[in-house]
Amino acid sequence: MKATALLAVVLLAALSACTDTGDEPEPTATPSGLVWSDEFDGSGPVDEKSWNVATGNKEFDGWGNEELQYYTKDNLARDGAGHLAITAEHADPDAELPCWNGKNCAYTSGRITSEDKVSMQNGRAEVRMKVPAGVGLWPAFWMLGSGAEQWPNGGEIDVMEWVGNETRTVYGTVHGPGYFDDAGIQGEINLPADLSDDFHVFAVQKSPQRIQWQVDGKTFFEMTPDKLPEGKKWVFERPFYLLFNLAVGGPWPGNPTAATKFPATLLIDYARVYK
């Protein structure tokens, strides 16, 4: 979704390259240079200086994933306790909420993006959040390449994705030209307890020619140009902006079942960018 053009906060300080290139990357130290953050203090709507609120479904073809939620501005707000709450819930059956499948969307939820407002080229993007439990729920923290290039040519970095039928698994993925959708390059980590039990810190560290994914300070996945399929282009040497959403349904997470509890809320404690 295109928002009113505002001055982007582009972060150009590079990280030192990690010297370990083995199959199990070592944890990387958190940098100290905080350059932007949203602590989600207070209550009410998100800060318009940092965030755009996405709405709709049908006009975005189910957001490319046959998702069943209609995004609205009413499904996200600062909760007064230091969190951004993104809530998925049953939609009003009488509401006009057109979905990709020709029906009205059965659910509403929320999605925000920092496009044209906050972006990072090299550094660390970090979020602390708690995901909701339930089959068919699909919370994500991800990044898209800034600029006019059509997806996936500008690149996509999925910092954290979780699907409610795989309660202990976190996924990190890159998409680019010739390696997108099911061909995206993905890593994963299995945690000792259900992810929905507590808050966790998810981060990506991005330096020239290298991207690393972390959960609670542990590096679990790393991408460099030599890991791309032969002949494919590395498109990640550019600024990337931030996105958060709580999707419902689609082929990957599956559709909600009778056991899926609504409302379901993704709680974001903070979002931070370091140099």
Rank of each mutant, 00 (worst) to 15 (best):
E161Y: 03
L144H: 06
F180Q: 04
G184Y: 01
P177M: 06
V163C: 01
L144D: 08
Y171A: 09
V174K: 13
V159D: 00
W151V: 10
W151I: 11
R168A: 07
G176Q: 05
E149Q: 10
W162V: 14
T167R: 08
V170Y: 02
N153H: 09
P139S: 03
G147H: 09
S146K: 13
W142G: 00
H175G: 02
W162S: 06
M160P: 02
V170D: 04
Y171D: 07
V163K: 12
V174T: 06
L144N: 06
G145N: 15
Y179P: 13
V170Q: 01
N165E: 03
Y179V: 04
L144K: 14
V170R: 02
G147D: 07
L144Y: 07
S146V: 11
A183H: 08
Q150S: 08
V170M: 02
G155E: 05
G164E: 03
N165F: 07
V163Q: 04
W142Q: 01
Y171W: 15
E156P: 05
Y171C: 04
D158V: 00
W142T: 00
Y171M: 12
G184N: 01
F180K: 11
D158T: 02
G145D: 11
G187S: 11
F180I: 01
W162P: 06
W142P: 00
T173F: 00
Q186C: 06
P152Q: 07
H175I: 05
W162E: 10
T169P: 00
I185E: 03
G172K: 02
V159R: 00
E149G: 14
M160G: 12
S146F: 14
D158Y: 01
E161C: 01
M143V: 07
E149L: 14
P177R: 04
S146C: 14
V159W: 01
T167D: 12
S146Y: 10
D182K: 10
A140S: 13
Q150R: 10
P152S: 10
T167Q: 09
G184Q: 03
N153I: 11
D158K: 01
Y171E: 11
G145H: 08
H175F: 07
D182H: 13
H175R: 11
N165G: 02
A148H: 04
G187W: 08
Q186G: 05
P177F: 15
F141A: 01
Y179L: 10
Q150N: 15
Y171L: 15
T173G: 01
A148V: 06
E156N: 09
H175D: 09
P152F: 09
E161I: 04
R168S: 09
D158P: 01
N165H: 09
G164T: 09
